[in-house]
Design a protein around this nucleic acid. Structure first.
Lengths: 234, 234
DNA sequence: GCATGTGAATAGATTCACAGCG
DNA sequence: CGCTGTGAATCTATTCACATGC
């Protein structure tokens, strides 16, 4: 896969500060690059990448420049090489054990989602507080009780926890995840969580997204599409 | 529910330009206010609201000031009144018909999600391209074929479309939704969509979120939690 | 010649700090 | 006196425009 390896020197390994907004776009570029690579194309310009990613070319160049000078003037970027550099920067060259807590409709859907394994995320445990769910199998994992979190922490060292519980349960679950050594949390519960410094927290919130759409829908109900366009940040 | 009504005058109805970042936080404040209201508390300070929303007080005040001067100096904000003003600003005092396209694991979970009806979003139709799924019932809606979109547009006038299809199908579905007059789209498919000006588009992307977490996880693996903290933006 | 890489310019968001007012 | 509302200061992100170098 990765052709050129980073050639020794000038590697200050993580000592460039990459803006948050850029970090949020790297996964998008990565996906575009995979698509380009599938088309057996060896080189891609910032212009082309920008078009695919739905941003402008200057932004692509600036973003990529934070990673290093990985392009060739007059030519573009080597697809495989850039693919590798972005993967590495995002930490996707190692694999991250994931634990999913809460196996209602959404948790179920997540547990069955295939996109995980694809890029280094491996679901190692499923947890639910409901005794009625404990023991049932989803794929080839059995659902375990909340109390097993510490044990799971010891045996599987999950780095990432996904919370798909009802809102009321979410903060307690977050606390338990943190206590079990999880340092990254993705929260689907419609509630603001607080976690200690040193723990990364991101959220995905359907009802917030709908309400944002509602705002722009009512504003220029139909007209001039500024504002709500694009963006994930989030 | 809403106590004081807006008292005539000084209402320039939507002629303040509210920053995108502020719009994205209004739903969070709304949720916090609901919680405060449930506790039978009549008044709330920016400080308290900030704590609940996980932001700082200056930001809350600045955000709310874009809506108007709805607070009382030395006192705080009237909970019910602010609740109503934010709801109105977000367009939640009217109801928005929603169509869900794609009823795999995730689409199913969304179709069964109860949070919709709560705040003015009403699922009026379910659509899937797979003939095997067409006709099956989810809740009390039957799944209809893609070709029915125009008919649905005429009868139900959906304003918002949710795309929960596989990546390959998503752009085609988006085009059809737009053609059917849908002007707000929430995309769950892992692909960059393009829509014409005047159509709002937001995305929710699990694998991007995980990759962002992976970045910070690998960086200060554990240490100093800047960067990935909070935020939805998206 | 042509597309990258990047300083400089601009736009947008956050935070500070305090005047203003109930 | 206490808390809002807001200009001014700061920080972050985007875009421009062009020198740079393959």
């Amino acid at each position: 896969m990765h052709v050129r390896r980073y050639d020794g020197a000038m590697e200050d390994r993580g000592r460039r500060r990459i803006p948050e907004a850029t970090v949020a776009r790297l996964p998008v570029y990565l996906r575009c690059l995979v698509e380009v690579a599938d088309g057996k194309i060896a080189t891609v310009s910032s212009e082309r990448l920008a078009e695919m990613a739905g941003v402008n070319a200057a932004k692509v160049r600036k973003d990529l420049s934070y990673l290093g000078s990985y392009g060739t003037r007059g030519v573009g970027y080597d697809v495989e090489y850039l693919l590798y550099q972005i993967s590495r920067e995002l930490g996707l060259t190692q694999d991250w054990p994931v634990v999913i807590v809460g196996l209602g409709n959404l948790g179920h859907a997540l547990a069955n989602y295939n996109g995980f394994s694809a890029r280094g995320f491996r679901v190692v445990a499923l947890v639910d507080a409901d005794p009625g769910k404990v023991g049932t199998k989803i794929g080839d994992l059995a659902v375990r009780p909340l109390e097993d979190l510490d044990e799971i922490a010891t045996s599987d060292r999950p780095a990432i926890g996904i919370i798909a519980t009802p809102a009321q349960a979410a903060q307690d679950v977050a606390d338990r995840l943190v206590a079990a050594g999880v340092t990254s949390i993705l929260n689907f519960a419609p509630v603001v969580l607080s976690v200690p410094d040193g723990v990364s927290l991101r959220k995905v919130d359907l009802s917030i997204e709908l309400q944002i759409l509602s705002f722009y829908q009512q504003r220029h109900a139909g007209r001039s599409g500024d504002g709500a366009e694009q963006l994930a940040k989030i």
